[in-house]
Amino acid sequence: MSFTFSGESAFFPRVTSGVVLVGATLLLLRNRLPEPLYTIVNKDERLIGNEDTDEDELAASELEEDIGSGRTDSHIVLALMFVSFIIVARFIGLLFASPLFVLAYALWTEQPKHVLIIMVVIGALIPYLFMIYINLPVMDGILTEALF
């Protein structure tokens, strides 16, 4: 749809996306590659450490261990909370969403009441200072734009 630009402008994106495609395909199919491609794709070049270690297998086994111990939850929850914060902020603006996000996080991590209050105040101050000093439109959200 947007591929209306000239050959000169298209050259660099073609090369970079081509490398990404080839690299991703090689990595995806690496266990089915013939020699010597298999060795080249799987070999980790490094100054320190075991060259033959398959890092992905290590990461996958760590992930399985994490799931077994229930340790994965916290960072997934954080990632989900962060994405929710961005979505909510798009609707009500960053000025109101930021302290709400900090409050939700502080409640989740069971912070003492005085720490929680300080965190929320700082969470509200950050967007406020951005608004005051560089006129960042932090109040703008889909809903707040309609209201104010």
């Binding site: 947007s2 209306t4 630009f5 000239s6 000169e8 402008s9 298209a10 660099f12 994106p13 970079t16 996306s17 490398v19 990404v20 690299g23 991703a24 090689l26 990595l27 080249i40 794709v41 799987n42 070999k43 980790d44 070049e45």
Partner: peptide, 28 residues
Amino acid sequence: SLVKGLTAGSLGMFFTTVGVSPIGYETR
């Protein structure tokens, strides 16, 4: 791995091609 590094680096470069091209100022 060199393949992983090249793929990551090229992806980074590819993301920079979004927007106005430095050549001819066309949008991509």
